[in-house]
Design a protein around this nucleic acid. Sequence first.
DNA 1: AGAGTCTTCCAAAGCGCTTTGGCTATTTTG
DNA 2: CAAAATAGCCAAAGCGCTTTGGAAGACTCT
Lengths: 340, 340
Amino acid sequence: MNLKQLAHMLALSQTTVSRALNGYPEVNEETRRRVMDAAKRHGYRPNPSARRLATGKSGMIGYVLPTGAAVDIDPHFVEFLSGLGDYARGHELDLVLSPADADDQETTYRRIVANRQVDAVYISSPRPQDSRVALVSTLGIPFLVHGRSEGFDFDYPYLDIDNEGAFHEAARLLVQLGHRRLALINGDDRETFAIHRERGVRRALAASGLTLGERHVCSVVMTEENGYRATRRLLEAGDAPTAIACSSLIMALGVVRAVRDLGLTIPGDVSLIAHDDVFPWLKPENFSVPLSTTRSSIRLAGARVAERLAARISGLEEGARGELWPVDLVVRGSVAGAPA
Amino acid sequence: MNLKQLAHMLALSQTTVSRALNGYPEVNEETRRRVMDAAKRHGYRPNPSARRLATGKSGMIGYVLPTGAAVDIDPHFVEFLSGLGDYARGHELDLVLSPADADDQETTYRRIVANRQVDAVYISSPRPQDSRVALVSTLGIPFLVHGRSEGFDFDYPYLDIDNEGAFHEAARLLVQLGHRRLALINGDDRETFAIHRERGVRRALAASGLTLGERHVCSVVMTEENGYRATRRLLEAGDAPTAIACSSLIMALGVVRAVRDLGLTIPGDVSLIAHDDVFPWLKPENFSVPLSTTRSSIRLAGARVAERLAARISGLEEGARGELWPVDLVVRGSVAGAPA
DNA sequence: AGAGTCTTCCAAAGCGCTTTGGCTATTTTG
DNA sequence: CAAAATAGCCAAAGCGCTTTGGAAGACTCT
């Protein structure tokens, strides 16, 4: 059942039927009702390929997926995806993932924009001066950054959580508890979120005249193993920290294991606060010692990103609106006063 | 730069240019060279929307993503996706995720097929008599099942790992070590993989005249917390098992925590074998006691699924070819002889 | 009553590609 | 050497939708 048939069956022109269905004003309400009625009755669904060719709109949002033999997709991605799905479902919005060589994403961005394969894209895990952000904003496709870049002379729309604030709060709490030597086990410090977190910790320390020792901050891919190694290194050194801030729950698993392996305890010897993106399959309250966390649901962020992208596509949202979500600090058993 | 312009510039018809580029035989090799050359020089890329309208092919593979407030996407998915990406990248294959209400995926399948939005789909986490498999095979779109369904009177193409064999081997090893009371902490037993694993364990036990006690098998969503709870329940009961087979590394985290909480040790009091899908961020050898596992890379499976789907799209693969991958049993420190 | 304004509809021209059905040389065949 | 086959190209017809530029009729206004 296509437009032609439907129009013929209604003894109307394709034009009128098309306009009736798409809500154009120049069609009699009575006629519109007839058309919509017939369309529903015959299960007419406009062919998206055709509509797309005619309008250039695809009804999809895009994501360039960095891949490569040495590249692992972040497990956070799946939760973010759940959120996207929560919104997209029921809005007939599909998501297209375009895998690209992690070292050359530009080609892919250009392709999907030139081909008008998607109506909007989002960018995640941005870095300062992220070339994707610059590229996409010149390409002129609606987009949204999940996270923030930095160092541009232009603004752009984003959704980010207050990483700096979160880690500032976390570090401030630890300092208040008497800790003088903090360590930060961070994610990849080429990414903005990690930079912001470090900034937060440093700011809290500075407020009490403290600093983050050179060897007390490390930046690694967020795996359990890396959390373990970093912790061993920190705690086996001379000026071992008495408190650790950690950028992910998965790394925190490694931290906990390392502390135990060394015959130390949390929070007796070491206090620990980690960031929690709220996974259904790994919860901080279920750690052997319930973990204090800075908490922000990445799934909710995914839903909001989808919602805003949809708004941008339909022109409801414009401009470089930035949205910064506060982060909860949830205190549980893994923090205590500094050991004597 | 579109076909028309390119044709005009070459003083050829669109027909000839199109045929030259698409490798049709009825064009002079000399001419073809000229055309391809010009196309490359001017960076001509056929408009996919137009091609799609004309041919009905989209160059994308589809996946219906079950979503819902109570539905969590499996973290395994992200690794599978990495694998898909590994293949798809460089083949200009995009992946479209169509979020659907988990309780009504049929509508979405029908939509993407009717709209010819994708050239092929894959189905994951199938159950016996899975309605998606039946549906998709009547809809007549190329597809591949990752995992297996059961109980159909027709065959279908799939890629699965030998779950039964894997858990059979694991259980057999435990029995050989003298264990008499095994327990299985399984995933959702409405899914085929879980059924097969249980079958494998039972078969191994039966071979030695043993059985899997009713209360020694449990089926839960594979989270750390559920692994913990299941283990507590198992070990605190009267006829506590001396060995546990566990369907995922994430659950195994909970198992380990529960064992420790009860003041028991692995493998002194309890032996443990878990299934490992090979995550980069959580490795069995890094558990406090290195974990014995049945190992099969889900990422490799993802790549193979993409490869086979591509083959099916281009007609290189046909029929109901099933592919069953063997699973490695990797023995590490978490298993030992049964306690006296 | 005539001019001007709405309202409601339509024919036809795209969008950019693939594919069908010829048409003209050129080569092969009996 | 005439007939048949082949190679190489093209014009035009789709694919199914949106949108432009009218046009016909109804209505308002002076």
